[in-house]
Nucleic acid binder design. Structure first.
Length: 220
DNA sequence: CAGTGATCATAT
DNA sequence: ATATGATCACTG
């Protein structure tokens, strides 16, 4: 799948996917559909990346570098409610003195997002899950402010050695949660007294209440 | 049963 | 180990 050259081309392709089931799309692209996602958690996301021509791989750059667009699938139930939080990026736990929100990875990644809702209740077989209507989002000033506030608070805690006091409930819209192979994984971090320690890697996630508001704005 | 913490596959 | 893609599953 060639990468789209313009935003219009990307959105056109995206609209063409709306209403298709994952089974139909997988068949078109020559993929087998897993029975469940327990061992293929990123399967749907990667299928949709391919269908839209996103640059493959796990490079630390937007899905569509030329367009500056980040693609996020958003699993929802039949009422349009998000089923899961949305992973944004890993959180830097060291070397973060005086980083500005505007320069942060979170801010960059969320500056332009193509949200692609996916009817994905667990009771629906994977192959029958239906692709929804994708929409482009840029945070408005209020959303930007909420994100920045949470980010600054979390980053200050991290920088001051408070990593182990942070739990998922901390932010209003943005949260910090484990992002690792398992609970034994370790990465460099800052201890209570400012000393180097090893800690569980974390990632930034958008809470479902936030992504639900984005859906409301887009569809009512 | 929502939300937090844990986990899975793959590429580099 | 760290980055990508996320969902699983236990707990209050």
């Amino acid at each position: 799948m060639k990468t789209p050259q313009t935003l219009d081309e990307l959105m056109l392709r995206c609209r063409a996917l709306a209403g298709l089931t994952l089974g139909q799309l997988a068949a078109e692209l020559g993929h087998q559909v897993p029975v469940h996602l327990k061992q293929d958690k990123g399967w749907a996301g990667q299928l949709l990346e391919q269908a839209l021509g996103a640059s493959a791989g796990s490079k630390a750059e937007p899905d569509f570098p030329e367009l500056g667009v980040e693609l996020k699938t958003l699993p929802i139930d039949q009422h349009g409610k998000p089923l899961e939080s949305t992973y944004v990026c890993v959180a830097p736990l060291t070397g973060i003195n005086q980083q500005l929100w505007q320069d942060s990875w979170v801010c960059q990644k969320l500056s332009l997002v193509l949200w692609l809702p996916l009817l994905a209740e667990r009771s629906i077989p994977v192959a029958e899950r239906v692709i929804g209507t994708g929409f482009l989002w840029q945070p408005d000033s209020k959303e930007q402010q909420l994100l920045q506030q949470d980010w600054e608070e979390l980053m200050e805690l991290i920088a001051l050695g408070g990593i182990d006091q942070i739990r998922g409930a901390h932010g209003q819209v943005l949260q910090l949660r484990p992002k690792a192979a398992n609970s034994k994984a370790l990465t460099a971090a800052i201890g209570e007294a400012g000393q180097p320690i090893q800690a569980l890697p974390r990632g930034f996630y958008l809470k479902t209440s936030f992504t639900q508001q984005l859906l409301r704005k887009a569809f009512g």
